[in-house]
């Protein structure tokens, strides 16, 4: 059975670390970084990349539009 794999790319410099994406992720993929970006925010990143299904939930709730989402069907 084909498995759906996903990935996100966070524009870390524009991320304001609000964590709305983190709580919206059904797979708990997203964590907050241990270091801050140029604006001083702890930005979002894929803490558990293997669990991402590319559902886009994080992207569509992000108030700053900093998340781009990718998805493939693995053969």
């Amino acid at each position: 059975m084909a498995k759906v794999r996903g990935a996100i790319v966070v524009d870390t410099e524009q991320c304001k670390g609000c964590q709305v994406c983190k709580v919206s992720c059904p797979q708990q993929v997203i964590g907050m970084s241990g270091t801050v970006n140029g604006k001083g925010y702890y930005y979002a990143y894929m803490e558990h990349p293997e669990a991402c299904t590319g559902c886009s939930n994080c992207g569509i709730v992000c108030p700053d539009g900093v998340i781009t989402v990718y998805r493939v069907k693995e053969a």
Binding site: G17, P63, G65, V69, V72
Partner: peptide
Amino acid sequence: NRVYKKSDLLYDTTFNFCPGC
């Protein structure tokens, strides 16, 4: 493989809203 990205009709500037607004 891209399934979601910010609209092209938005300039590539940071919104001046507070985090999470």
